[in-house]
């Protein structure tokens, strides 16, 4: 009987010091780059969202590449939420046995071991809004570079087919080819049925030459242009989506705590629609349709 008591005492001590008890408490560290406005505001909103889900998280702000690795390791994180390109790089250097969730990236990243939360919406979201605004739409024209936006094409084709739309996507390697493709399209574009889907691409969406060309020609020919990038809306495209960063952060944090993440890209789901009122006026978008947009630009 005495012996049994001793056994019980030893077992109790062992249970007390068993490390599994520590592992059960997640240590979440958010690593993101030290940037100036307007990007700093975006990251702070994401952090706010993360804080709502994981109040006790730690934060590492990365200045020069590699400068946050040591601090990151000192925290002995179980989970790392890497925001942006610099956050991802820093997390990859210091991850160790911690799980890494990448977020605030434009497209899927092979280096990320778990899920990547992108900032671009599923093309279907945009196509649905296109149908809403112009039920007569039949053809969507897009120019893209495979390296940057090739991953969207399967999604886009599926989304177009689901909405009875014809996606005419042209892959290009340089801006001149993009210009030629756009010129060719505009030469025969029908504003009643044709529209342009612009992608955040520094080849097909080169900001100094290609984008002005597209927007100018579209304006001249009354062709509807929508984009996956909110910047294009501010320059004259009709609509896009703008991330709701706080909700986005919450979703990222929630996903980070869930085990068994797959290495996949999760498109932006926390967003609001944004519309360019000048383009809308030019294309005679109805007031009722305009009312469906949460954000307008330029601001009245």
């Amino acid at each position: 009987m005495k012996f049994s008591h001793l056994k019980l005492a030893i077992i109790a001590l062992a249970c007390f010091f068993y490390p599994v008890s520590a592992a059960e408490i997640p240590v979440v560290v958010v690593v993101y780059p030290e940037v100036s406005a307007p990007y700093r505001d975006s990251f702070e909103e994401i952090l706010n969202g993360i804080a709502k889900r994981i109040p006790a998280h730690r934060v590492v702000v990365v200045g020069a590449p590699g400068s946050g690795v040591e601090l990151l390791r000192q925290y002995s994180p179980t989970h790392i939420i890497a925001l942006g390109r610099a956050g991802k790089t820093e997390a990859m250097l210091a991850a160790g046995r911690a799980s890494v969730t990448c977020a605030a990236l434009v497209y899927p990243d092979r280096e990320c071991p778990a899920a990547t939360f992108g900032l671009l919406p599923d093309p279907g979201v945009l196509f649905s809004r296109l149908k809403l605004l112009n039920p007569g739409s039949k053809r969507i024209f897009a120019v893209y570079s495979a390296n940057q936006n090739g991953w969207q094409l399967p999604l886009a084709r599926a989304a177009a087919a689901a909405r009875n739309l014809e996606l005419h996507a042209v892959e290009v390697d340089d801006s001149k080819a993009a210009v030629e493709a756009y010129k060719k399209f505009f030469a025969n574009a029908d504003p009643a049925t044709d529209s342009v889907w612009m992608l955040p691409d520094n080849i097909s969406g080169e900001s100094s030459a290609v984008v002005p060309l597209v927007l100018t020609e579209a304006w001249r020919r009354d062709v509807l242009v929508f984009s996956s990038a909110v910047e294009h809306v501010r320059r004259g495209a009709l609509f896009s989506v703008i991330p709701h960063f706080s909700n986005y952060g919450y979703a990222v944090a929630d996903a980070a705590l869930r085990p068994g993440q797959r290495n996949e890209l999760i498109t932006l789901r926390q967003f609001r629609y944004i519309v360019n009122t000048r383009a809308a006026q030019h294309l005679r978008v109805s007031a009722a349709d305009l009312a469906t947009f949460e954000v307008v630009t330029p601001r009245p």
Binding site: R85, L105, V106, D174, S175
Partner: peptide
Amino acid sequence: YIQAADTPFENASSQPRWL
């Protein structure tokens, strides 16, 4: 050159392209 805006959200920093 042309160079896309290098935002912190880009997966890789963009390089200027000679025209």
